[in-house]
Computed example of a mutant assay.
Amino acid sequence: MKLTLAAAEAVIAAAKHYVAEQGYPPVCISILDEAAYPLAFARMDGTFLATIDIAYQKAKTAALFKANSDKVGANFLPGAPAYSLENSNGGLVGIGGGVALYDAEHCFVGAVGISGATIEQDLAIALFAANALSANR
């Protein structure tokens, strides 16, 4: 099943709800399809401009590897199997906040990227939003 715009907007809504509920700072939310192309995006009021690209790059990292960006990023460290791979594909981001999206049948459908809060908060927001997608399918 493909990720629809309506589903992507639901992921964004879940992320925004979680940010407000937790009292986190405003974030950018980037949703990519299974081919790592942009499908939906939101920039909450007051978010730093730099987070636009970072949210996209986190989502792209998760989409290209079908894995969470922090898990992929562990391979980018000195001495790791893919040291400096973050310089490929127009730039990858290997910290928390990029999460692969799966449908109810556990098929990969895309990725969400969050940036603007702490790395831990970005990851929590992305995981919450991803779980909202799985719960609504």
Rank of each mutant, 00 (worst) to 15 (best):
V72E: 13
G97E: 05
K71C: 09
Y102F: 15
A13D: 12
L85D: 07
L49Y: 07
G91N: 06
G98D: 11
L85G: 05
A130P: 07
N87S: 13
T47L: 02
P81E: 10
P38F: 05
Q57C: 03
Y24H: 14
A35R: 13
L3I: 03
A14R: 05
L39P: 07
Y56H: 11
K16I: 08
A6I: 14
Y102V: 01
L32D: 05
Y24R: 10
V93L: 15
A126L: 12
T4D: 05
A10M: 11
L123C: 02
L77N: 03
M44D: 04
Y56S: 06
I29R: 04
V72S: 12
I29Y: 02
T51V: 01
A63M: 08
S88W: 01
V27C: 07
L85K: 10
L123Q: 15
T61S: 14
Q57W: 00
S88R: 04
A59I: 09
D33Q: 11
Q57F: 02
A8D: 03
L127C: 14
E9I: 09
E9C: 10
P26C: 04
G46Y: 01
E105C: 06
L77I: 03
D53W: 00
Q57H: 10
S115I: 00
I29D: 01
F128P: 04
K71M: 15
R43S: 06
I125A: 00
A10F: 07
H106I: 04
E105S: 10
I52L: 07
A55N: 05
A135T: 14
G23A: 11
D53C: 03
L5G: 06
I119V: 15
A67Y: 07
D103T: 00
Y83P: 01
R137Q: 11
I54A: 04
Y102E: 03
E105H: 10
N131M: 02
Q121I: 14
K58C: 13
G97F: 07
T51S: 14
A10Q: 15
N136G: 13
K66H: 15
T4K: 04
I114K: 03
Y102T: 00
K71V: 15
A7K: 13
G98C: 09
N68K: 14
D45L: 10
I12H: 00
P78G: 05
G110T: 13
G46V: 09
C107Y: 12
A111M: 09
K60Q: 08
S115T: 03
K58L: 11
S115V: 00
E34F: 11
P78N: 05
A20F: 01
L77D: 00
V109G: 03
S115D: 04
L49Q: 06
F108M: 07
I52P: 00
A40H: 04
G91V: 02
G94I: 03
D33T: 15
Y102I: 00
F108N: 06
E34C: 06
A129D: 04
E21P: 06
N131L: 01
